[in-house]
Amino acid sequence: MVEKEYQIIAKNYELAGRASSDIKKKLKQENIGRSLLKRICASCYEAEINVVIHSVGGYMTFSHEKDNYIEVNVYDDGPGILDIDLAMTEGYSTATEHDHMNGFGAGMGLSNMKRLSDVMEITSTPLGTHIRMIFIVGESNV
């Protein structure tokens, strides 16, 4: 079992992607297939960007149960997602102009993460949000 934890700093676009990049390096060393690698990395990057844009900071954990599945958990501190169904709607966003200048905030992040992961669960309160994503490591993903 491989486990790692990464801090994510709010509003810092320069450091966004550090966690996803490290996860990618680790998975490459384990010869994970290109398609699965892309799904995991893209989901992790979207999750990191969401924390950067919408929260006051958070962290991501990554665990790899060999030959079975990869689990990514993302936790952030406030303000939470008021309406999860609405937030999952492609195109809905509360991002700012600054976020748009950095190429994000189009309201596609959560829907991309849902589409790219095998399982995604969101729990959110005004104190923060927790997103759990599971990626099945199977023959179709080699």
């Binding site: 992607g17 950095n102 790219l116």
Partner: peptide
Amino acid sequence: IKHVKHQEALITLIASQTTISLAMM
């Protein structure tokens, strides 16, 4: 993230660190 295919080049207006991070991913 949703649409780019393997080995495609990206054409964009966004000259930000996020563009490089995305390309890496």
